[in-house]
Amino acid sequence: MSLLELEDVTISFGGLTAVESASFAVNPGEVFALVGPNGAGKSTIFNLVSRYCTPSGGDIRFEGKSLLGSAPHDIPRLGIARTFQNIELFEHATVLQNLLIGRHTHRRSNAISEILHLPGVREEERRHRLAAEKVIDFLDLQPYRESRIMGLPYGVRKIVELGRALAVEPKLLLLDEPASGLSAEETDDVAFWIEDIRNVMGITVLMVEHDMGLVSAVSDRVLALADGKTLVIGTPQEVQTDPAVIEAYIGLGDEGVDE
């Protein structure tokens, strides 16, 4: 059974159809990429899965159950974590605190026991901290542990946001342009991390990315979108050579969609 399934999903914003009958399924253990020119509706698909928007038609299923009855804050509890295209971190908190906030779905204590700081709360805090430290080690964030987000460079923020999503310990990770604005080396790091996230942590990845180099390096299947319409689903190779995709990226030359 596929992990995430979109069936005939359509949404429009005041006359503009941002996504038009999108249908695809992401299998467990897969890295699935969405590509397409600006305004194609890639982020909108993420927002539909996160339940920030409600489709006007179709259904979105996760592990066979429809997500349409869930509120946005229920989604991570089901096992879906995400990052944002325009980094959305907790600016006045430290990197460590951001990762710890990511543990919210694993909270077992209630407000009263926390106000009294009962022994169980402390025990739980240690476990959250251990999980956050694992993420810090994985992403090499040690130098920034106690830094506030406000003062951090763009590349580090991008990685902290990935870390916060990993702290959720999801089954499915949605990455919205994980490599945009990163240097070539940083992009290579991201490619390694995505492979490890899939192979070592066993997390399924659905990502939006413009960097075709990264897409071909890590993804199993690619869906190309333009103006909300699905053009083609296939391997990175197939998608890059598809005439309709090249057409959509017209002006980018003959080397396909590589930017």
């Binding site: 920030y52 804050h73 989604i75 991570p76 995400r82 959305e88 906030i101 919210h104 916060r164």
Partner: peptide
């Protein structure tokens, strides 16, 4: 306080 959007994305009601 810092971001309602991502607060929801990590499960804060």
């Amino acid at each position: 306080r810092d971001s309602e959007v991502s607060a929801q994305a990590i499960g804060v009601n």
